[in-house]
Design a protein around this nucleic acid. Structure first.
Lengths: 228, 228
DNA sequence: TAGATTGTTAATCGATTAACAATC
DNA sequence: TAGATTGTTAATCGATTAACAATC
């Protein structure tokens, strides 16, 4: 039961994973136990139950969780029980790829506008949406409701555009630019630093002994512990 | 000093951030203290020093860290002191965006090949690299060295292509497909789940009281604690 | 009913921060 | 030298796991 505890951010960050998993299970099975959900997500049943308990008792002893209901409840917590609108700032190839990415629409996020500075792309239509000049950002936002902005522009341009978005009333930013934005506390930012992820992968490729031991296979397989 | 401690994964995941920050400081300033680095990265000086100490003593008491040297040392730890090659599986709009993304090349990752199943894109040239039919994946990998693969294809196709990449000897995978891959322990995978990040942002937009309190601004500003 | 499985608390584990001797 | 700042250990904090009473 929801005891008005402060929910740790790390729990929030896991909710989309539960949501994605339940999405795949919808229509396939009616119920799921914390044990099965944990197995599918490579985590522990304890963690699943504790995570879900922050939001209230969704389960039933001796039964588990109803897949469809849990899916809907988590969707509601994540705010996708109602339609959402977003804009893209930066209509380069990454911005256009996001505009064409079908999964955003599937979870209920509709593309409302695209902005760019480049005269070559302004006026072109991507996924049914025209690219507008970034000068019109404020005037457009004054007349169109939009919750989130996706930033797909160079690191140099990102801080300025982010500030303008905030002043124009944006509610949150998904930032792909390889820089860290300093914004007011009431405007959440989630970063997707592509290069950081590639570098982390590069570390494991380069340094994990298991990755280079074609000639030194003295690994103890018992040491590898899997959750649950 | 490197005391052969096991390095926590969370420390590895932070290295690219240090690297990115130092990259911007190169040529601008000669030295940096843990305090300044922490301020720039919104973390604590203690954490910076402890993180770096896992890899050896890079600093000098009373001085700090030499920017250029620290940059190079972290680059070496991350494996980008030598050229790296990667391929892209899935030449849809996201795959093409990655192919054109300049920052991967800047950190030393060169695009070696693109693969797709779609006859319409096979044969086209993206950023100087021809798109090959995915049937030729194994034969191409047999004759071309490549360390990493970027998976930018639908969730349905991802597990099969990932398995084929592993059997053909890939060393690591950067996965954009919205699914979790089950691969052998010696093949590291880093996921970039775009939708999960958008959903996490959506949660904060929808639920953080600070985000919707145009009418209820009873927040205690003292409660907001900043690191350092 | 008996078996299964939740929600929750306590125990454990790991990560962050604070403190400080070492020393440039 | 005196001031600054590291590297490292100890203290604190937070997250995960284990255990189990509640109950469907």
């Amino acid at each position: 039961m929801n005891k008005e505890k402060q929910i740790p951010e790390i729990v929030i960050e896991r909710l989309p994973r539960y949501y994605r998993c339940l999405r795949q299970m919808r229509g396939v099975q009616e119920k799921v136990s914390s044990r099965e959900l944990a197995r599918r997500l490579s985590t522990s049943a304890s963690q699943v139950r504790l995570d879900l308990s922050y939001f209230g008792g969704f389960g039933l002893q001796g039964y588990g969780y109803n897949v469809e209901e849990l899916y809907r409840r988590i969707g509601s917590i994540l705010g996708v029980d109602r339609p959402r609108r977003y804009l893209i700032a930066g209509a380069g190839s990454l911005g256009r790829a996001i505009a064409n990415y079908p999964v955003f629409l599937e979870i209920g996020f509709e593309l409302a506008a695209l902005f760019d500075v480049n005269p070559d792309v302004i006026g072109s239509v991507i996924n049914g949406v025209e690219v507008l000049p970034v000068d019109q950002l404020e005037s457009w936002m004054g007349t169109h409701p939009v919750e989130a902005a996706v930033l797909t522009l160079p690191a140099e341009a990102a801080p300025d555009v982010a500030d303008r978005l905030v002043r124009a009333g944006i509610r949150g930013i998904l930032n792909f630019a390889p820089c860290d934005l300093q914004l007011p506390d009431d405007v959440p930012v989630k970063n997707i630093h592509l290069t950081d992820r590639l570098l982390a992968l590069s570390y494991w490729i380069s340094n994990d002994p298991r990755c280079q031991n074609r000639e030194k296979p003295e690994v103890k397989p018992e040491k590898i512990d899997r959750k649950n």
